[in-house]
Structure formats: C-alpha cells, structure tokens
C-alpha cells in the first residue's frame, strides 16, 4: 500500500512536505516558466504547440506530484484523478478524428466535405447533390481514396 504513512488505522499520519522541498519545486516551476516563455520568444513555428504542451505537462506533474501530494496519495485517489485526464484525451481524440479528416475524399461518394462545417465542399457539393455526378470516386492524381 502506497499510503505507508498511516501506521495505525485510527490517526491520520500524513507525509509533511519540508519547506526546502516546496521551495525546490517552486524554483523548478520558475525555471520551466522561463523556458516556456523563451521557447515562444525564439519562434519555434510548428513546434510551438508541442513544446508548450510538453513544458506545461512537466510543470503540472511537479504541482500534482509534490504540491498536491500525489506522491503520497492513496493509489485509488490518484487513479481517480488521472482517469479524468484519460477521458479528456478520449474526448479530444474522437472529436479530432471527425473534424480533422473532413476535407478528405469520402471513398464511398467521391465527394469532399467542407472541414469546417461538414457540408459538401464548395464547387463539388452542389452539382453532386443535384445528381449530375454519379457517386463513383473521382480521385485526382496523387490522392488516396483510402
């Protein structure tokens, strides 16, 4: 059992963080904040978001692990909390799986959809809906129908 500080089943025997440790964590958080601002100032372009997420996650982990005492928390509580992050990722993953691929050619209909609205894309949709085109994939060179 990770909750080793409970050495009897009556009193609450917490782990008490030392001031020194809390200060060290705060110092680390300061450094990482400087790092994330620095990464922004040198203009990383496409890597901007990924670097920001990685640094923020390291900072968040420090806060959770030391300030929120996840290091000494009961495994069940930790599981509970981290479980909510799993559901956030499912929420994000499934939504992105829809919206990020809307511009691709639908292999069954050969039509493009507007990735922002989900409507038939401009220039192909109207004629297609009026039945002037048969629903057979008409791929351009270099496109994949998969």
């Amino acid at each position: 059992m990770s909750h080793h500080d409970h050495n009897d089943d009556y009193h609450v025997r917490p782990h008490i963080s030392s001031t020194k440790q809390n200060l060290a964590v705060l110092f680390g958080l300061f450094i990482l904040t400087g790092l994330t601002v620095g990464a922004y100032r040198i203009h990383l372009g496409d890597a901007n978001l990924a670097v920001a997420v990685i640094i923020a996650t390291v900072k968040a982990s420090l806060v959770c692990y030391y300030f929120m005492h996840l290091k000494y928390e009961k495994a069940f509580n930790t599981l509970f909390f981290l479980g909510s992050l799993l559901f956030l990722l499912i929420f994000l993953g499934y939504t992105a799986n829809d919206t990020e691929y809307r511009a691709d050619v639908d292999p069954d209909w050969g039509a493009r959809v507007d990735r922002r609205r989900g409507d038939p894309a401009a220039g192909t949709g109207a004629a297609f809906l009026e039945g002037e085109f048969s629903p057979i994939p008409t791929l351009q060179e270099g496109e994949s129908g998969e």
Partner: peptide, 28 residues
C-alpha cells in the same frame, strides 16, 4: 480526500470542453 479528488476530476472534465474547443479551432 476521495470526495475532493472526485470533485477535482469533475473540474478537469468541466474544463475539457474549453480545451477541446481550443485545440480544434487552433488546428482549423
């Protein structure tokens, strides 16, 4: 403590709509 962690998990889910909207709009 279990009650508080449950509440915090709910808070993450509460904010998740904002974060998912943010990331999708940013990619669009």
């Amino acid at each position: 403590k279990l009650g508080m962690w449950t509440f915090l998990a709910q808070e993450i889910l509460f904010f998740s709509g904002i974060f998912v909207a943010y990331l999708l709009f940013r990619s669009w």
